[in-house]
Design a protein around this nucleic acid. Sequence first.
RNA 1: CGGGGCAUAGCGCAGCCUGGUAGCGCACCUGCUUUGGGAGCAGGGUGUCGAGAGUUCAAAUCCCUCUGCCCCGACCA
Length: 577
Amino acid sequence: MKTSQFFLNTLKDNPSDADLVSQRLMVRAGLIHKLGSGLFTWMPLGFRVLQKVEAIVREEMNRIGALQIVMPNVQPAELWQETGRWNDYGTELLKIVDRHERAYVFAPTHEEVITHIARGELRSYKQLPVCFYQIHTKFRDEIRPRFGVMRAREFLMKDAYSFHLDNASLAETYQKMYDAYTRIFTRLGLDFRAVEADTGSIGGAVSHEFQVIADAGEDALVFSDSSNYGANLEKAEALAPKNSPSVSQKTKELIHTPGKRTIKAVCEFLKLPETQSIKVLLVKGTENDMVALVLRGDHEVNPIKAEHHPLIAVPFTFADEKLVESKVGCAVGYLGPIGLTEKNIPVIVDRDAAVLTDFCCGANQVEYHLVNVNWQRDCPLGEVFDLRNVVTGDLSPDGNGTLVIKRGIEVGHIFQLGNKYSTSMNATVVDEKGQPVMMQMGCYGIGVSRTIAAAIEQHHDEHGIVWPTAMAPFQIALVPMNYHKSQRVREATDTLYRELQEAGFEVLLDDRNERAGVLFADMDLIGIPHRLVLGERGLDNGLIEYKARVAKEVQEVKLTDLMSFLDTILRVKHYIE
RNA sequence: CGGGGCAUAGCGCAGCCUGGUAGCGCACCUGCUUUGGGAGCAGGGUGUCGAGAGUUCAAAUCCCUCUGCCCCGACCA
C-alpha cells in the first residue's frame, strides 16, 4: 500500500474530549472517528487493525471447533420477554419499534437468539456438544459512555455459546475456551491475566475474566505474589484469620465522643489503631427491614459478597437513615453491635471483625462510643461471613503468599451458564433413552474493539502507538528520502516495494511529497513495527537503514542482505501448542 | 437520573461581559523556495456562530425553549 493511495489522516492536536492515552492516539492516528456519544467509525487504518484481531480470534475459535454464524442485532421483543430480560436487563437495553409498532431490541448480547436457534435445531444428544460463535457489533446503552472505544455503546464483540448434555461436557468446552483465550491474547502480544470472577446475576458456578494489565483499567484485580491465584476485587478472598479472640483483661467502658462520627475521627480521638475498631453498616434485608454488617474499622464492605448472603437484599442498599434513627435510637456514626439482635436486626460479622479482642465501637447512643468491647462477653457474635474487600498485604486464600492489587481492562469473559436460558426458553434434547434433557450452556465473550484500545494503553510511547506485531496495520514502513526529487531513490524504492510485497510482507510505502520529519513522525504515530529508510547516501554504499519501532537506535543493513535480514526479524511466529 | 460545563471553519480555540465588517493556530488549496525528525514566504475561507422562538433599527453576543456533547456521581453484564 502507498500512502498516496491510502487514507492517512493524522492530527497534531489532541482531541479535546479524550481522557485516555489510547483514545487520544486512536484519534490522532486516524484509526477511529467519533460519530456521537459512544459511537465510532473505524477508519481504514483502524479497520486493518480490527481485522488483524478478528483473524486471530477466528483462527483460535475454529481451532477448537467452534462454528461461526451471524445473528441479527434487531431481535423481537418476545424472545426477551420469554427470559424476563425485557424488564430485568435495565436501561442498557435499547428498545426499538418498527413501522408496524412491533417491539424489538437492538441486541446487547445474543443468549436469547442462540437459545432459540438451539431449541429449534438441536434435537438429539448426538448433536452435542456444539459451539457457535459470531464476531458482530453489540449495542449497550451505557449510562455514561467514556474512554473512546473502551466503553463505547456500539462495539465489536466475539461471542460464543456452547450447548451440552451435562456439566462435565460443559466443563470440558469451558477449559478449551480458556486455553483458546490464552492463545489469542498471547498471540496478540498482550500482558494479560485470567482471573476468577463473580458470576453475578448471570448465574452459574464458574467464570473467568481475561484482563489486560494497565493502570487505566476500570477493574481492580487481586493477585498472589507467590502463586497463580488471581481474582477480580469483587470475587477475591483473603485467607480467613486462624486466630480466635484472646481472653480480655479489660473492662468495657463508655466514652463521650462528641462529633466523632467516622472511624478515623474516633480512633484518633481514642488513640487506638483503626484495626482495633469495628464499624456497623445497616443495609436492607430480605426478611428484616434491616440487617447489620460488622466490619473491622479499616476494612471496606464488598457489596457483591454481601449480596450472596440470603438475609441481605439484592441490590445491596443501605437502610434509610430515618428508619435507623427510629429503630436503633442514634444516628449513623455511633452504631455498634450491642443490642441489635434484641431489636430484631440480624448481625452478620466479617471474619476479621470476629476475631478482635478489646475493640472499640459505637454505643448506639448519640456522641458515645465503647472501648474494650468483646464478643460473647458483651455481645453475641452473630453469623460470621466474608463481607469485605481484600487489601494489599492480605494472605492469599490458597495459603501461598500475600495479595497485591493491580488495575486491568476486561477484554474477555467466559461463563459456565448452566441451564438458566435453556430452562426459561425450554431448550431440550433427547438423551440415549429418548428422554428430554435440558441443555447446559456456556457463553464466552471477547471485546474485540476494546482489546485494541487496551493494547495501545499497554504499548505506546511519547511518539505514538507501538503496535504488537500481530496487531499492526502494516508490518513495514518504507520511507524514501527525496522520493519526488531523486530518480535513483524512486526507482530503488519502487523495486524494493515490489520485492517486499512479493515476499509477503505488508508494507506501507510513504510516497507523500512531504519533508522527512513529517514522514517519520506519522510512521511513529501510527506505530508500524519496522521501518526501512532509503536515501541517496545509503544507495551510494549499498545500504538501507532499519529501525524497529521499539528500538532507540537505527542500524544499517546491506541491501543485498535485506531479505534474509527481514526474514529473521519478521518471521511470523505461529503459536505452538 | 442528580450536579457542573461546553456548542463559532475539518480539528483545537478566541470573540459574548459592554449588541454594529466572522477571527486565530493547525489542517486544506495555489505558487515559489526548502527537503534525514511535524519547513519558509505570498495568496486563498471551505461558516445556517447547534436548532427554534423572542427583544432590537441591528443578535455569535441579550431573554426563553429544545437538542447534542463533555466532566463528576449514582447504575450495570
